[in-house]
């Protein structure tokens, strides 16, 4: 299909990044075998790792270190709801340009769930609320790339959520993820999602990788309503979307006790 691209398109083209992200993940996971028990700072994996923390035997990861303290992300995707026109090209781009298929339910930018009735949802009244059945304000949910303690990362019993350079995104290691869905429940903003039934063969968690610093959602937005910006801590400002079950909070606290 080379002939389909005009010179204009070639100029526009910015390298889609997930292959690089995947390559980075695999590279570091391989490399990590030589880094047992030591900090990986400066080697591309900005973490403090400890042995055996919270890892389950079923995941086969009990002998590998897992990250507990992680460096802050360097970038984040920030949404501007006033500009969002609700086309959801960001959702399509996030999944299709990274994974080769379309599935908005696992997109790492989430618009559809707020599209019609806003963040509060349909049961809170609609005529004056957010969303297309209300005042047309559509909030695009994006990953906060939480600072330590990172809820999804610490809740994962398999240590499958790790931090990778260059932008220190919190990324699912699909080799370790078993699709248990605990991270989905652990994120206060419900930003992780499973691509299939819980614990089913092939089910993996999906969360924002920041596309190696060049997010597809940002490139795809036709209204400039998504921006890639330097990271700042939004976790204290944005109300949680869901209540994290106490059982998961306890598990996270357990890992906190390793250091605190």
């Amino acid at each position: 299909m080379k002939e389909i691209f005009t010179a204009v398109a070639r100029e526009l083209k910015k390298d889609a990044s997930t292959d690089e992200v995947t390559a980075l993940i695999r590279k570091h996971f391989t490399r990590r075998q030589f880094l047992v028990g030591s900090s990986a700072l400066g080697l591309g994996v900005a973490t403090f790792s400890i042995l055996g923390c919270g890892a389950s035997g079923a995941g086969g990861a009990s002998e590998t270190p897992r990250q507990v303290f992680v460096a802050n992300a360097l970038g984040m995707v920030v949404a501007e709801p006033t500009l969002c026109v609700g086309c959801r090209r960001c959702e399509a781009a996030c999944v299709a340009y990274n994974q080769g298929f379309v599935q908005p339910s696992i997109s790492n930018v989430k618009v559809n769930r707020n599209l019609l009735f806003g963040v509060l949802g349909v049961t809170k009244g609609f005529q004056r609320g957010d969303g297309d059945y209300g005042n047309f304000r559509v909030v695009q949910d994006t990953c906060r790339q939480c600072p330590h303690p990172v809820p999804c990362q610490l809740a994962c019993p398999h240590g499958a959520i790790e931090v990778i350079a260059p932008v220190n995104a919190r990324v699912v290691n699909i080799d370790k993820c078993v699709g248990c869905g605990i991270c989905v429940a652990a994120c206060p903003w419900a930003m992780t999602s499973l691509n299939g039934p819980v614990n089913a063969k092939g089910t993996k968690s999906n969360k924002c990788t920041l596309c190696n610093g060049n997010p597809e959602c940002v490139q795809a937005c036709p209204a400039g309503a998504l921006k890639y910006m330097a990271w700042s801590d939004k976790t204290k400002d944005i109300p949680a979307r869901q209540v994290v079950p106490a059982s998961i909070q306890l598990a996270v606290a357990d890992s906190c006790a390793k250091c605190h």
């Binding site: 691209f5 398109a9 526009l12 889609a16 997930t18 781009a93 340009y97 990274n98 080769g100 490139q219």
Partner: peptide, 12 residues
Amino acid sequence: ADKKVWADYNKH
């Protein structure tokens, strides 16, 4: 289509 081809095609 390959995901990069599809992404580039959309921009085109």
